[in-house]
């Protein structure tokens, strides 16, 4: 799939923002007054900034409000509804902390649940797609929620929780990479089933419908980035998990180092999320001769 910068920025930043909101809703940490204002401002900048970025890839962003109407059937619609609900509930909860020095605990819990539901709905936009076998699995929501929770704990300064959660997110990512590579083959979709001609012999794309690119080849068939996938996976994993974990656990605590851990984690998350899209194989690519096994296997 085409790794559109707007979608990568959206999923990474809003995931972190809602992850931070989830911890604030639980009172981890309990903050009031100016400190609370700073924490909530960071969370809202990330969550709302990410959502705003997501509208950049729309053809008609002026109609975006229509996207809240189909929550009965569409995960994209549900994501919008959950996001707005989470932001409203957490705004009320945050106002209590900032202006009234009051912690309305049940409201915070509701906000936490809605924040995590938003991240889950984001992940389901991808996990629901049978056409991308790498994503069509329950590991996709696990991965997205693990990222949000680890990043949220890190941003919330919950070092005791963040250290193990970083390892969980890293382990989930390694596992997803490992099994994700096999999922297209396991899906059973081949050029043979795509054309219905597989029973007659080996099928290969002889001629494409046109000499140039089209919307489909540009949107669904991204092959360029896969060349460096292994190197990017290693760099991404180091920045995402290993570097921040070492900073939290091995080095003495300082705010500057904690900031460095956060930046490293976010950089790693961007690389991993870029790979999430760039490495994903859409089955329509089969019609265009992509994802074909080498001739000896055919």
């Amino acid at each position: 799939m085409h790794p559109a910068p707007s979608i990568i920025v959206f999923t990474v930043l809003s995931g972190l923002g809602f992850g931070l909101l989830a911890f604030l809703g639980l009172g981890l940490p309990v903050v009031t007054g100016w400190t609370a204002l700073v924490f909530f401002a960071i969370a809202y900048l990330l969550a709302v900034g990410g959502l705003a970025a997501s509208t950049f890839h729309l053809g008609h962003p002026e109609r975006a409000v229509l996207a809240l109407t189909q929550w009965r059937s569409s995960w994209l619609s549900r994501e919008g509804v959950f996001a707005i609900a989470a932001l409203l509930v957490m705004a009320a909860y945050g106002a209590g902390l900032v202006f009234f020095q009051a912690r309305w605990t049940p409201l915070g819990w509701v906000g936490t649940a809605l924040s995590l539901a938003t991240v889950f709905a984001t992940s389901m936009i991808y996990a629901q797609l049978k056409t991308v076998p790498r994503w069509h699995h329950w590991s996709t929501p696990v991965l997205f929620v693990a990222y949000a929770v680890a990043g949220g704990a890190l941003l919330a300064g919950q070092i005791a929780l963040a250290a193990p959660l970083l390892l969980v997110a890293g382990a989930a990512q390694l596992w997803v990479w490992q099994v994700g590579d096999t999922r297209l083959a396991a899906s059973g979709t081949t050029l043979g089933t795509a054309t219905g001609l597989g029973g007659r012999g080996g099928v290969r794309s002889f001629e494409k419908p046109h000499t140039g690119p089209n919307y489909l080849t540009k949107e669904m068939i991204h092959i360029v980035g896969r060349r460096h996938a292994l190197k990017l996976r290693i760099i991404g994993f180091l920045l995402l998990t290993v570097v921040p974990w070492l900073i939290l656990v091995v080095l003495p605590f300082s705010h500057a180092l904690a900031g460095l851990a956060v930046l490293s984690h976010i950089a790693g998350a961007f690389i991993a999320r870029w790979l999430f899209f760039a490495e994903a194989e859409h089955v329509v690519g089969l019609y265009y001769g992509a994802h074909a096994p080498p001739p000896s296997v055919r």
Binding site: H57, G59, P61, R63, A67, L129, T131, E219, V283, V284
Partner: peptide, 23 residues
């Protein structure tokens, strides 16, 4: 009512939907 998000094209296994480059 289309916002041009492209998700329907992602969901189609056959490549039957294409975004209009002008509209």
């Amino acid at each position: 009512a289309c916002i041009g998000c492209g998700l329907c094209a992602w969901a189609c296994p056959y490549g039957a939907r294409e975004m209009d480059p002008a509209e």
